[in-house]
């Protein structure tokens, strides 16, 4: 029964969550696109602009705004540092997870470690912990709602279980319990729709931690289209509106 549960989490639920998430994102984008365009400009003019000579309009500048968050850098520099750590480490983690696949070899195929040797996950975790603590004090606490906390707790749980897999997995007397190559086999199985039982590929007590990590990621994918994580898709068009 327990094995059946973990099998469901590790294989069918992954497919369900990914499809759910992708469809949800498409629906959310469609909801925005089908609305009429705003009737007039919503631009904010920067100090070096004039009504007749607007600078920096367009998607390129908006993309840069979304990526570097200049307003937060100016007005809340400490928050900005943690936001940059979070976003950069998230990007590296995505690449690191892709690197587990045997077809992608950013690190050599024989490497036991993931990209960053587990350090990226720590940066990711610390930044999330900061975001969560920040919501418990000052005026930010007054404007926060349940979903803000829930999302951060979910992300933090994913990060911590990821750290346990990265660090706990390698801190044994025998070295790595589960190797990068074994993770690669599991992910290849998912990609090739083999429906193979991951328990046979990922042996040992760490299987529960990996299962929990995957379960939490599945939950995140299910929740994502309804959450403000959708700003991933919308921050560029939002900044484009401000840029005019």
């Amino acid at each position: 029964m327990v094995n059946a549960f973990w099998y469901f989490v590790m294989v069918p639920m992954v497919y369900i969550s990914v499809i759910w998430c992708l469809v949800g994102i498409v629906v959310r984008i469609a909801q925005v696109v089908r609305e009429p365009r705003p009737p007039h400009t919503l631009r904010i003019f920067r100090d070096d602009e004039t009504p007749e000579d607007p600078l920096g309009a367009g998607l390129g500048a908006a993309f840069l705004d979304a990526l570097t968050m200049p307003s937060i850098r100016r007005y809340q520099p400490v928050f900005w540092v943690f936001l940059m750590i979070f976003h950069v480490s998230l990007l590296v983690l995505v690449v690191a997870h892709l690197d587990i696949l045997p077809q992608i070899n950013i690190l050599s195929a024989e490497s036991q470690h993931m990209l960053g040797n587990g350090s990226v996950g720590v940066f990711f975790t610390v930044s999330l912990a900061y975001f969560l603590l920040r919501r418990f004090k000052g005026p930010v606490r007054e404007v926060s709602v349940a979903s803000d906390y829930l999302l951060l707790v979910l992300l933090l749980s994913i990060a911590i279980t990821g750290d346990v897999i990265s660090w706990g997995n390698s801190w044994t007397e025998q070295g790595f319990v589960i190797t990068k190559q074994e993770f690669g086999q599991y992910m290849t199985g998912l990609l090739t729709l083999s429906f193979a039982d991951p328990l046979k590929l990922l042996p040992g007590t760490h299987y529960v931690v990996i299962g929990t990590h995957v379960l939490l990621v599945n939950l995140l994918l299910i929740f994502l289209p309804f959450s403000n994580l959708m700003h991933t898709c919308f921050s560029v068009p939002l900044n484009a509106l401000r840029r005019g």
């Binding site: 009429p36 365009r37 007005y75 404007v143 068009p237």
Partner: peptide, 30 residues
Amino acid sequence: NRAVRLYLENCSRCGTCIDACHAYASTRDI
């Protein structure tokens, strides 16, 4: 419209805007 929907759906409540308002800066009332 597109903009309004984006504005309503995408606030992260990060609180960066709080200090921007003269009314909040003058009263500290959220």
